[in-house]
Design a protein around this nucleic acid. Structure first.
Length: 410
RNA sequence: GCGGGUGUAGCUCAGUUGGUUAGAGCGCAAGAUUGUGGCUCUUGAGGCCGCCGGUUCAAAUCCGGUCACUCGCCCCA
């Protein structure tokens, strides 16, 4: 009989206990921080109508254009696995009574799907944790979101570079596009072939091309800042002032143009040097026009998303505080061992029973999963005394046969 | 989607111009060692050589395809 393939599908992964622990630790850490900023959880479906992302993320964006897990379901509807969270959260928000009380601070977490070529730190199913501050046009809230994100990276022990920019309003951007295209057309033949195509589809993206030829040309390109109104520039200043006030180091990068259509004004990206070309770890910005694209009514908002998998690869694992654990190794005394375990668990201590006739082997087994070992045999039951052994440093302690005393001794 | 690299034991890797039964270290199991592990020694288990096909008397080795990983591009978290 042929056996089935055990490998997961391309870009999909199994998280074995050690990896799963780090993953959950990161989510727990982020959750605590964003809740301390007043954010509440929202859970939305993994499956959405394809139209949602076409309208919000943009039909000509790469995410929608070539990376969607899209298919026709049994009823003939065009559906897809969500490629990102913001559009779903906005949809759920607009569809709910939450939209009656502004502003709203929401966070979400879960798998996203993009059909692209996998690499380290880039998978077809990946977990994102995101925060959305919906219904605010206060630049301090943009700053607040960025400070919150930096707090997360600090907490996890991840060093970063923060790039920020403003891409203004839709009108300002359209104006800048014209200026930029007319400039680039003068250097058309010197551009990379890719950028020549982008001149038609998405000229702003030429600005952050990695091709040296393109970079040489765009170095002298007109800046978007020259196409912005004083109001927009003032807004941008306020965001920067907020970051300076809280001593968040950042660099202005007028080439930071995000790939999703719904962004406006503030954009930012926390980058790392440790993951090769997968350098973005937290990215986001303001999206005042998203709601307009969906329901025709504007609703200023700002948010970001973080790649949990990328944080897993970067985070300082020594920060994960180990849980106290005790192994009960019994010598033909199973009832006593299981009872003592239950008593220890009443105090919230991780404990498990080890059964092995050979004492030495039993202690070796205990060492693999626990910090301490207690041996229970006839003597211990007769004397009502236990020896607790610290498996890390071999120290031993005597204690009464009682869960409370054991915990106090440790 | 485009270009390069890799795939041999649980892990890290050897494996000669194609040539008997594919190896090592670490790890795992048993024993030396029947009430307190980690050292040492002995022994042992564990392999569809990623998968499918081709060439050949003979393939881990050569060829084609495929799957997965990986690096760069694209893009992004």
């Amino acid at each position: 009989m042929n056996s089935i393939t055990l490998q997961p599908k391309r870009g999909m992964r199994d998280f074995l206990p050690n990896e799963a622990k780090i993953h959950l630790y990161i989510i727990e850490t982020i959750k605590k921080i964003v809740e301390s900023y007043g954010f509440s959880p929202i859970i939305t479906p993994l499956l959405e109508s394809l139209d949602l992302f076409k309208r919000s993320v943009g039909e000509q964006s790469d995410i929608v254009g070539k990376e969607m897990y899209a298919f026709v379901d049994k009823s003939g509807d065009d559906v897809c696995l969500r490629p990102e969270g913001t559009a779903s959260v906005m949809r759920a928000f607009l569809n709910s009574p939450l939209s009656q009380t502004l502003p709203a601070r929401l966070y979400y977490y879960g798998p996203m799907f993009r059909y692209e070529r996998p690499q380290k730190g880039r998978y077809r199913q990946f977990d994102q944790f995101g925060c959305e501050f919906i219904g605010t046009n206060d630049p301090r809230h943009d700053g607040d979101m960025i400070v919150m994100a930096s707090r997360i990276l600090n907490q996890l022990g991840i060093s970063y570079i923060l790039d920020i920019n403003t891409i203004g309003t839709l009108q300002e951007r359209e104006h800048y596009k014209k200026v930029l295209v007319s400039f680039l057309n003068d250097h058309h033949d010197a551009l990379s072939i890719q950028s020549q195509q982008r001149l038609q589809t998405n000229p702003l993206r030429i600005l952050d091309s990695k091709d040296p030829k393109d970079q040489l040309i765009t170095a002298n390109a007109p800046s978007i800042l020259d196409s912005l109104t004083p109001e927009t520039l003032h807004f941008y200043e306020e965001v920067k002032n907020y970051l300076k006030h809280f001593n968040i180091p950042f660099q202005e990068n007028s080439r930071l143009v995000r790939g999703l259509d719904y962004y406006s004004h503030t954009t930012f990206e926390f980058k790392t040097k440790a993951l090769g070309s997968q350098d973005a770890i937290i990215a986001g910005g303001r999206y005042d026009d998203l709601s307009k694209q969906m329901v025709g009514k504007s609703l200023p908002s700002v948010g970001w998303a973080v790649g949990v998998d990328r944080l897993s690869l970067l985070c300082d694992q020594s920060k994960i505080s180990p849980t106290l654990s005790i192994a009960i190794l019994h010598l033909n005394q199973p009832w006593a061992a299981y009872e003592l375990c239950e008593n220890l668990r009443d105090f919230g201590v991780k404990s498990l029973v080890i059964t092995h006739p050979n004492l030495k082997k039993g202690i070796q087994l205990a060492e693999r999963s626990c910090d301490y070992v207690i041996v229970i045999g006839d003597e211990e039951i007769k004397n009502q005394q236990l020896t607790i052994k610290n498996l890390k440093n071999s120290e031993q302690y005597q204690t009464n046969y009682c869960a409370k005393d054991i915990i106090q001794t440790i």
